[in-house]
């Protein structure tokens, strides 16, 4: 009898591997019922398997897109407290038109509340993208761009961070676990003032985790290289010149101040990013930047350069 039970467990594992996690609970339920019916496992054993598989399914739950949006709004508000907004309709409309188009061809064109872009009034070379799709680019970084294609490279890199969900990955594991366990209790409807206070605390912690990484320490270098690779593929899908990314990085290399608290601190050296791009030979499909794009770039942001 035991042998039989082990056998059905083995089969269950194989089945799980084949159908993936989403079907796991369903498969467990069916297999448990089969096990009970054929007498290979007792009803009691069946009950406990059902319970534990449900617990696993719950602990795998993640933040919903709506929660990512609210996290993003507050992360954005923190960014705007460090760097003020640039109240410039011409530049912001241009940035949003380009950003919306780039987002359309990204791997994640749809977000809970869409993508939104804003120029920051700072000479620092910096840019941020929140999990909610708020993308910020400083004047200082726009000054590293000489053409629309180079600015598209900057914007596409930030969309890359959103699409790869780098912001959310900055949340500490323990905090994520704590948050999700509180959310499960909220679901269980035993949610009192204590849990609400706890949830507010965790929210504050999540914001600190993300902004510390984004503003102070930077993502891991590998995330930046991933966002560069994503930027190139997004640019190519729109016919932007992929060469514009290393061109922009070359200008940045000259303008960046060593020891600064901006990209100088949070990003790999522009030279290293160029080297990584070259190594992967990702410039296939090089095109020219036509005059019409050069002209409208100057018209929209020339006064900021």
């Amino acid at each position: 009898m035991k042998k039989q039970f082990r056998k059905s467990l083995t089969m269950l594992m194989m089945l799980a591997a084949m159908t993936g996690c989403a079907a796991m609970e369903q498969a467990t339920t069916v297999a448990t019922v089969v096990g009970e019916a054929t007498g290979t496992i007792s009803r009691q054993q069946g009950e406990s398997i059902r319970k534990s598989s449900k617990a696993v399914a719950k602990s795998l739950e993640d933040f919903t897109p709506e929660q990512e949006y609210y996290i993003g709004r507050t992360v954005g508000a923190v960014v705007l407290t460090k760097y003020g907004p640039l109240n410039d309709d011409r530049a912001n409309t241009y940035l949003n038109t380009m950003g919306q188009a780039l987002a359309r061809v990204s791997d994640m064109p749809e977000l809970f509340a869409g993508y939104h872009f804003l120029v920051l009034d700072s000479d620092d070379i910096n840019a941020f993208a929140t999990p909610g799709g708020h993308v910020f680019i400083t004047r200082g970084l726009i000054r590293c761009c000489r053409t629309e294609d180079e600015l598209a490279a900057v914007v596409a890199h930030e969309i890359g961070h959103v699409q790869l969900q780098h912001g959310m990955s900055a949340i500490k594991k323990a905090r994520r676990t704590e948050a999700l366990s509180v959310l499960v209790r909220e679901g269980a409807k035993s949610f009192g003032t204590k849990e609400i206070a706890q949830l507010n605390d965790i929210f504050g912690g999540v914001i600190t985790d993300i902004t510390n990484t984004m503003i102070n320490n930077g993502y891991s270098r590998s995330y930046e290289y991933q966002a560069d690779a994503a930027a190139l593929s997004i640019m190519k899908r729109m016919n932007y010149n992929p060469r514009a990314l290393p061109d922009m990085l070359n200008v940045m290399a000259k303008q960046i101040k060593p020891g600064g608290t901006d990209f100088a601190k949070t990003h790999p050296l522009p030279q290293n990013r160029i080297a990584a791009l070259k190594k992967n030979d990702q410039f296939v499909g090089e095109t020219e930047t036509p005059d019409v794009r050069k002209n409208r770039f100057m018209k929209a942001v020339g006064h900021l350069l």
Binding site: F63, A77, L80, T81, L183, N200, F203
Partner: peptide, 29 residues
Amino acid sequence: LAGKGFSEEVEKEYRKNNANLDYAWINRM
């Protein structure tokens, strides 16, 4: 179990304790 958690209410509470944060431009953008 669905989508409660971090919501408008949680944001409101956070804003109360962090009055310096600039949400006006978040709304505007």
